[in-house]
């Protein structure tokens, strides 16, 4: 006996055709802050990369006969007290800010994650690591960076190192918290029970689950690092005066700001816009990646 099966009849189309909208349009509608922040940041990165081709001159070229000139057609943002072109210095200054911001975000994320993982997995190291982190956190970040910079010569590398040290404890704490809560999850217990080695558990089950919180934290660290670099340079403990950074330009304009406010104004505006862009990106990422945290803040 043989049975023949008929193909199931075509189901009638009961659901209305979804409104067609481009992927990009949907993304913009859903995450306006990511788009705004990311867009502004992209512009800044382009400005930093293309600095030599944006109508700039040598940012360190001195023209003593052209000192503290207000903005004009020749010098768009004016000149400083050594006759250097503020427009060129500001454009080149974007490089320092962005390098410091990204480098600190990357380095403190890596170091903090490593410490947080060790703290969360190695019981006897947990207390000593976290106590040292508590101690570091008890020193206000900017002061800690100032103290570290007082020990070394002013250079971009040292500024990055000093700010990174101040940011590591927060990342370590965040990651340790995530590790401790993930360790209790049934799938991690199952992995342990089935004999998966610890490095594999970390790589496969723990790290992917820290990425959302970590990337949000990293953007905020990037913003904080850019502000800290500017503050350090502003009070004379940051990048050396030979390198044009926004903090340095403002530090040099400090004594003259009541009569020549434009020297301070332009780097200040660039710094604020860049930090705003990174913060917007961070807020957007938080809303998109970590809905629980978004509800809390």
């Amino acid at each position: 006996m043989s049975t023949t099966y008929e193909a199931a009849p075509e189901l009638p189309e009961v659901l209305a055709e979804p409104r067609k909208r481009g992927r990009i349009a949907t993304f913009i509608r859903r995450h306006p802050t990511i788009v705004a922040g990311g867009g502004l940041l992209t512009i800044m990165i382009l400005v930093a990369l293309l600095a030599p081709w944006l109508g700039t001159v040598d940012p360190t070229a001195i023209k003593p006969w052209m000192r503290t000139r207000p903005p004009s057609a020749e010098h768009w943002f004016g000149t400083d007290m050594l006759g250097r072109d503020i427009y060129s210095r500001t454009i080149y200054g974007a490089r320092v800010s962005l390098i410091v911001g990204f480098a600190v975000a990357l380095l403190s994320s890596v170091a903090g994650t490593a410490l947080g993982l060790v703290s969360g997995f190695v019981r006897w190291l947990d207390t000593p690591i976290m106590r040292v982190m508590d101690g570091l956190m008890a020193i206000p970040g900017i002061l800690l960076a100032i103290a570290l910079m007082a020990l070394t010569q002013g250079s971009v590398t040292n500024v990055v190192a000093a700010i990174t040290v101040t940011q590591i404890p927060q990342v370590a704490r965040l990651i340790r918290g995530v590790v401790l809560s993930l360790r209790e999850q049934p799938y991690v217990e199952a992995a342990i029970a089935s004999g998966t080695r610890t490095p594999m558990i970390i790589w496969r089950h723990i790290l992917p689950n820290t990425l959302a919180a970590l990337s949000v934290q990293a953007t905020y660290i990037c913003a904080a690092a850019m502000i800290t670099e500017a503050i350090l340079s502003f009070i004379g403990a940051g990048t050396p005066p030979t390198i044009p950074s926004w903090g340095n330009i403002m530090a040099e304009g400090r004594s003259l700001w009541q009569v020549k406010p434009f020297i301070v104004f332009f780097p200040a505006a660039f710094l604020s816009v860049t930090v705003l862009a990174v913060n917007l990106l961070g807020d957007g990422l938080r809303d998109a990646l970590d809905p629980r945290m978004a509800k809390r803040l």
Partner: peptide, 10 residues
């Protein structure tokens, strides 16, 4: 957000 992003000296 603006208060957060504008450095104190600005």
């Amino acid at each position: 957000v603006f208060g957060f992003s504008t450095p104190v000296f600005v």
